[in-house]
Amino acid sequence: MNDNIIEITGLVKTFRDFWFRPLAAALKGIDLQVAKGDVFGLLGPNGSGKSTTIKIVLGLLKPTAGKVSLFGLPPRDRRARARLGYLPELSYLHPFLTARETVRYYAGLSGLDRRTAHVRTDQLLEQMGLAANSNRAVGGFSKGMARKVAFAAALVAKPELLVLDEPTSGLDPLATRDVKELIRSLAADGMTVLVTSHQLFDMQDVCSRVTILSQGQVVGGGTVADIVAKSADPRHALEDYFAASVQA
């Protein structure tokens, strides 16, 4: 039995311009698997293809070549996407909606019934420390608060797979610590997490496995435990491994 939630084989993505001429080769044949229960870190420098990979997994972009499966189904299959939650790189929220309306909106999009949506929304707003501000429009929120609202929206339908694109980007140290705690607790509850980030210290803290991309290719990867075990400086293990892989 295959336990992989995400399977990517020979994935190629070439962006084209208006006249269909090749513009940029974002991915040049990558393979990766995310197993059930993993906290999987997709790491790489800017322009390495992390966000493109995530968008193909989410069915937002079409691969030029290669095979991608999500829960054993094509990424654009609704049955597959019904089982995931997504936190985009920036907290894209409707500025006119309040925090409560935003989470209920995503609950509605996930098909939750009215009663469940209300209960889950209240639970998550409380859990994220947003209950006191739940009736304020999110357009006036700080970046950290907006991130929390986006997190609540991603979690409202209790997804089996959570896709996090730069979850700690732009957050202060306390908010970053809260996010890491949250990822750990979700993983402890058995949720599979696919996360991208430039914050290697944070990734070392939360990920069980990582893959490193550079210029659209996989240049390294493995379990974080192995990487730490083989490192001369365990505190900076992932950072050293990342630098060695990218510069090789």
């Binding site: 968008k55 989410l58 069915g59 937002l60 609704r78 049955r79 996407r81 019904a82 995931l84 939650g85 997504y86 985009p88 790189e89 920036l90 894209y92 929220l93 409707h94 995503y106 999009l109 996930s110 098909g111 986006a150 929206a153 339908a157 896709v163």
Partner: peptide
């Protein structure tokens, strides 16, 4: 353009 559509269409929304 802003990305709210991406966040919505990543879910099971045709």
């Amino acid at each position: 353009e802003s990305g709210t559509a991406a966040a919505t269409l990543a879910l099971a929304v045709p």
